[in-house]
Design a protein around this nucleic acid. Structure first.
Lengths: 334, 334
DNA sequence: CTGAAAGCGCTTACAG
DNA sequence: CTGAAAGCGCTTACAG
């Protein structure tokens, strides 16, 4: 855990000819220490190239200045943008980040959370696959926690994406552009984001074009799912003139597959994605999307958590992150 | 750092009516404990919903099962792919990741490394902006470390990208496609990757088309730099028929800027990037690139580190990650 | 097999 | 201002 000849505060104290207690006080800039003593201690520390053992400090102080981040996956720009936002805010506050990733397996969430005990001051958890009640229970014994993008459990502050509103707006946009038969390429069933986006699609279709004008093809947010969905649409649903994909990756892959088959966006089929990842603006035609400021989501979650650790009494409110319709060439027909 | 009514191993021991030592042994699956005792302890732990304090365990065992990752930035797919590779391998080995990011400031590297002391068993450091000797010194007192993508210091094992070979191959490819006046959009001066890629460009130009056939425009790996470089080429260097950008982001932005001005790849100008990030295959025309398996870089670095922590005597060898030429439409002319 | 004690490296009331 | 001691929560020789 440390190099061969690890030097501790005892070594510093010995060299400065003071007690360990005084060394500690000098090192930590306490006022109650003579200038001369402080000087001697600091000199000794410098001479020995002393680096404090932060693990030990955390244990005795009861604060680690570290926050745990539990994510379902690390794949793609969706997560990396969130981490970037968290990191940015954490860095500003002098906090370190302990990362834990469940690789998509929901039952690992609880394990990951437990593994954070005694190493973090607070938790940022994103677990769109897990039930709110179960998540709430997992979190109940631990440190303060903020839940990102999951069903609120009524106990922990939550920052959620307004998927329903976003999906409604996406579908309304396609209809406004003249689409009359629309396909939704969905995310995995049981994923809170995916379910809400699908619900928004179905609801809007039912109240506008009619339920039978829409079809849903299940996917899993991956490139492959976008390709497979496109192929199904090409062979089985040639009348489709609009596609709303549950994320940008599937939308991009779908659009590329269409193009290879000679089906062009936006004229033959208008396409819109969700998330607003950077890649969306560079494909041709540029992809319309419901843009999310994911880095902001991460930043806000961290700030919320800091507030929570400082005054324990923060209310378990839910903040919403609203997707913004960004119309680009892939869906612009009128 | 812990919830209100934190329960410790003492509580478990008390409830099971054994000593703390026995509780510890039972909890850790030691053999030297009666089946009955183990049962009682485990029951007590379950009843109290005990979660061990990993910080305390780390301190007494001298192992944290955590590795520290120090990166220069978190922006873009380059870093997220590396983290993903590290995480993947770490997860497989039951290791946690403590993340530290310097936001581009080289002098923060040393601070970041020190802040890891006592919290990690090993370090994975990427610091392309820092001098090898300085880095080596920063690392000298700490835990085992593997350096990613930086000049080898002769002390720590290093996994480096073969930028020179990659740049040579990229330029040779452009020439083979018929380019006669080639621009290089470089990364920031002082960045090891950028410098090596620039050197490869200049060297290859000098020995083939002649030094005067190439121009170098400095950039900083960002989208904006790609746009600015494209504008300069359009206005000042209309004879340019090939562009080798130091990374994909700049190549993509450059190509998009060209397209807006009516300059098409590959016919009017052949373009190739570096890194092989996923976005490259979705732009139109698809971007040629020197592809790097960044996730693999991360995985290999972690495995190397694990080997190092297990048998301390690993040699400070340098492994090379070789870029692969991926020819796509943006540079395919013949 | 089990318990009392020492220890991991630091911090912080408690006395002086 | 300074030191000796206790403590953070756990683990592990050391005796029995």
């Amino acid at each position: 855990m440390t190099g061969a000849a690890t030097i501790t505060i005892r070594d510093v104290a010995r060299r400065a000819a003071v007690s360990v207690a005084s060394a500690s006080r000098a090192l930590n800039n306490h006022t109650s220490v003579t200038a001369a003593t402080r000087e001697r201690v600091l000199d000794a520390a410098r001479a020995l190239d002393y680096v404090p053992h932060l693990g030990a400090r955390s244990l005795s102080r009861g604060r680690s200045h570290t926050i745990g981040v539990v994510l379902p996956d690390l794949f793609g720009e969706f997560f990396s943008e969130i981490i970037r936002g968290i990191d940015y805010a954490a860095h500003r506050r002098g906090l370190q980040i302990l990362l834990s990733n469940m690789h998509g397996s929901a039952d690992q969430t609880e394990v990951a959370i437990r593994a954070m005990r005694g190493r973090v001051d607070g938790l940022l958890v994103m677990s769109p696959q897990i039930d709110a009640a179960i998540l709430g229970r997992s979190l109940s014994h631990g440190p303060p926690a903020v839940v990102m993008n999951a069903a609120a459990d009524g106990i922990h502050p939550t920052i959620a994406i307004d998927n329903l509103a976003g999906a409604r707006e996406a579908v309304a946009h396609l209809i406004e552009q003249g689409c009359r038969r629309i396909a939704h390429i969905g995310g995995p069933r049981g994923n809170a984001d995916a379910d809400a986006r699908r619900a928004g699609f179905e609801e809007t279709m039912a109240t506008s074009l009619g339920r039978e004008a829409g079809i849903v093809i299940d996917g899993d947010f991956s490139e492959e799912a976008g390709i497979a969905a496109a192929q199904r649409i090409l062979t089985e649903q040639p009348a489709i003139d609009g596609v709303f994909a549950a994320n940008d990756m599937m939308a991009v892959a779908c659009m590329a597959t269409f193009a290879e088959a000679g089906v062009r966006a936006p004229d033959q089929v208008a396409i819109i994605g969700f998330d607003g990842v950077p890649i969306a603006q560079y494909v041709t035609p540029a992809l319309s999307t419901m843009a999310l400021n994911l880095a902001e989501l991460g930043e806000r979650a961290l700030e919320r958590l800091v507030a929570l650790t400082e005054h324990e009494d923060a209310a378990p409110t839910t903040e919403m992150l609203t997707p913004q319709l960004v119309v680009r060439a892939s869906s612009r027909r009128v």
